[in-house]
């Protein structure tokens, strides 16, 4: 079976985010970019399914400027078989991303689509669920275990208060949580090999989808700074402050 893995290029998770002084957005000039950590887990899961003999082909897809080919090459180096870049310079809302992915799903007919549960830049946590709705597929979001069993997949999900397992008919959508797996590092020979793997480029405008923005960001500001408090010298002083000054314990 084919597995499709949509991935996103985002700011590296180790980089400290700064807001532009004109409050128009965060400053992404000259910062290190990387594959979104949850997407990396999705790539890893797909490759493990291939290694287990369940998946026959792993296709990575990314929507964005030419720069996102770098992340597609990372996915290829990790073990994806081929990649598709959907070229656009627009900042697309999740619904429009999901509509483009719907077209890719219609063309490729994957049995399983694995996505990260959210991107660490926009923090929306939407695209996988939206794609599931548009393609009328069941979904296993925030997955920590994925078990394909014939024409079904059992997904154990991280929910408030514990775990929930659901059974989904294939084709299905899975979104990854942190505990699903620990992604491997790409080896140097595999990085070299990835350069020769196929990477198709398509234009977002050619899909016949209305990509008009659905949201407008009016401003982006830094969060309210929390002021450092005081260092107390002893537990006695701490207890006294909590009782009499902060009044949070009695």
């Amino acid at each position: 079976m084919k597995v499709l893995v949509p991935i996103k290029r985002v700011i590296d998770f180790n980089v400290k985010v700064r807001v532009k002084s004109d409050n128009s957005n965060v400053d992404l000039a000259n910062v290190k970019m990387a594959i979104n950590p949850f997407c990396e887990i999705a790539v890893e899961e797909a490759i493990r399914l291939k290694e287990a003999g369940i998946a026959t082909e792993v296709i990575a897809v990314s929507i964005g400027t030419k720069a996102c080919q770098e992340q597609l090459r990372t996915a290829l180096a990790l073990g994806a078989d081929r990649a598709i870049q959907i070229q656009t310079d627009l900042e697309l809302d999740s619904i429009n991303i999901a509509k483009l992915l719907q077209k890719v799903v219609e063309e490729e007919q994957p049995k399983l689509v694995i996505l990260g549960k959210q991107a660490i830049d926009s923090d929306n946590n939407q695209t996988g669920q939206m794609l599931a709705a548009l393609t009328n597929m069941p979904q296993g979001t925030f997955a920590s275990i994925v078990k394909v069993d014939g024409d079904k997949v059992n997904v154990t999900r991280e929910v408030d208060g514990g775990l929930q397992t659901v059974a989904l008919s294939l084709p299905a959508i899975v979104t990854t949580d942190l505990r699903l797996n620990e992604p491997r590092y790409a080896s140097l020979p595999n990085i070299m090999k990835a350069k020769r793997k196929p990477l198709d480029v398509k234009n977002a405008e050619d899909f016949g989808i209305d990509l008009t923005p659905r949201t407008k960001t009016l401003k982006v500001t830094p969060p309210a700074e929390r002021k450092a408090g005081i260092i107390v010298e002893s537990i006695d002083e701490l207890v006294e402050k909590l009782k009499n000054e902060a009044k949070v314990i009695s």
Partner: peptide
């Protein structure tokens, strides 16, 4: 957005 490192008005 960005793990709470920025606040967007949308």
């Amino acid at each position: 957005i960005y793990a709470g490192n920025a606040i967007a008005t949308v």
